[in-house]
């Protein structure tokens, strides 16, 4: 059987006395798009730095396709990481970035990179320091998509992008992964917007895994019931409310789905990933 794209075994990392990753055990399987979610300081960037072999973990292992990445060319050659910031030297030209990628990524698709360059309106002669925040993100997206690496990690890919560019990215991501199956991990705070791309979601908080699940399961796991407050409360009875929201006379509450649910006369929608994320990071739990 093939090794998973990423396997974390008791992965632990500390900065001085501060624990960044607390004995993580996780598996990211092949050919799926994962959402890696967590609040600021949850440990996402530390995990990405360990995957890219920026440093060694304090203890435990992070395996990429069954091998540790630190100073091993084979697993690293299958990995492309697009970082949130500081990835590109300020004076490098976009054309130089693309040439370096062509030389260093074995599956680099030059034609596709050119196509994306036009789609995101990037001038290859421009230096990185001349780009706006959104253009910087666009360049990262081009690198990540055109690398066609068996494992691609995007760290905050949509930072600074306008809504059209974000839409282009999500569409391209889903289409391209469909055509060229590979594992993609997207770490983002734009949860609901990106959620439609994800097949699975991993939520980490304070270095621990809060949730590891498929999106399909989560969509069936909980719903948002909305309507007049009295009617919603009467329908829910004394059930645990995952979140609640009031808007004028309307009231919405998230609850776990039960077999005998009857919400006749009320609006029912699947609970959004963002709402579930907030619930989990504030101490809730998914069974």
């Amino acid at each position: 059987m093939d090794a998973p794209a990423i396997e974390l075994i008791n992965l632990h990392h500390k900065y001085g006395n501060a624990v960044a990753l607390d004995n993580l055990n996780l598996t990211f399987n092949e050919n799926k798009i994962y959402g890696l979610l967590g609040r600021n300081g949850a440990g996402k960037s530390t995990l990405i730095n360990i995957l890219i072999a920026g440093f060694k973990p304090t203890s435990g292992k992070a395996l990429i396709f069954g091998e540790t990445p630190f100073e091993h060319a084979a697993p690293l050659s299958k990995l492309c990481v697009v970082r949130e910031k500081g990835m590109f030297p300020p004076h490098i030209r976009i054309s130089q970035v693309l040439k370096a990628c062509a030389d260093l990524y074995p599956n680099w698709d030059k034609a596709y990179a050119q196509q994306l360059l036009q789609k995101f309106y990037l001038n290859p002669r421009k230096q990185f320091k001349q780009l706006s925040r959104g253009m910087e993100s666009s360049l990262g997206l081009i690198v990540g998509l055109a690398s066609r690496a068996p494992l691609t990690v995007f760290d905050e890919p949509s930072l600074g992008l306008d809504s059209v560019a974000r839409e282009h990215f999500y569409q391209e991501l889903v289409r391209d992964v469909d055509e060229h199956p590979r594992t993609v991990v997207v770490s983002t705070h734009m949860i609901d917007e990106a959620a439609r791309c994800f097949s699975d979601v991993v939520i980490i908080d304070k270095g621990k895994v809060l949730l590891e699940s498929s999106v399909k399961y989560l969509q069936k796991y909980a719903v948002t019931v909305s309507g007049k407050e009295e009617a919603v409360k009467a329908a829910l009875g004394g059930r645990e409310i995952l979140f609640e929201q009031r808007l004028s006379s309307m009231y919405a509450a998230g609850v776990r789905v039960q077999e005998d649910d009857d919400f006749t006369g009320l609006e029912v929608e699947p609970l959004s990933l963002q709402q579930l994320f907030v619930y989990l990071t504030e101490g809730g739990a998914v069974q």
Partner: peptide, 16 residues
């Protein structure tokens, strides 16, 4: 110094 971060991001090992 200048390009180490970029090259590490592009999955290049230190010995490479």
């Amino acid at each position: 110094h200048r390009d180490r971060r970029f090259l590490v991001s592009l999955s290049v090992t230190r010995y490479q």
